[in-house]
Amino acid sequence: MAEMAGPRRTERRKFAVEPIEFLMWAFMVSVFMIFAGFTSGYIVRKGDGNWLAFTLPTAFLLSTALVVLSSIAMQWTFSQAKKNELGKVKTGMVITLLLGLGFVGAQLLAYSQLVNIGLFLNGNPSVSFLYVITFIHALHMVSAIIALIVIFAQAFRFQVHSKKLMGIRLVTIFWHFLGILWIYLYGFFYFMN
């Protein structure tokens, strides 16, 4: 019978950054690299010519507003969790969740606006890039929404409070990251188009 020792409680050390949070930051670096790859490809391809210029769908302004509001709501939720205001935590999560879903909806609205003016996924690469990059970003947003639902469920089991902040902390960081990433992408499209 082998012994399973495992990490011991007595060896718990103080970390400047908890390892799991550090892992989250490193993960965000790798996610950013996907989009760095996309946007560099965009620049390289644009330099080759045969590039269709078009105005960005107005729905992107809506999605930008929603993503900023959702970040504010998320941060507020986090601060309520720190203060052990468990009721407000749940309210904050619902608001964030709705705003997040609203963001994904606004992206779909943007796609329909593009389709209405005859710009399809399989058209000029300038349009295809817009579709694919925003789609992959939205997929990440969906994963963040799923993570939010998971900690929402935890909140009902009284698992989110000032002594147990890591889950909500990670979701908050990732949520802000996706918001900032969207603003970067929107700015990129705006200035490059």
């Binding site: 490193a26 670096v29 790859g37 996309f38 490809g41 399989n122």
Partner: peptide
């Protein structure tokens, strides 16, 4: 690995779109 594999993933995503969704990257 953390800095370069995601870029291959980006390339593969564009390739998948070219193969299956008719884009012309």
């Amino acid at each position: 690995g953390v800095l370069s594999f995601p870029v291959l993933l980006a390339a593969a995503v564009l390739l998948i779109f070219d193969r299956s969704f008719g884009t012309s990257f």
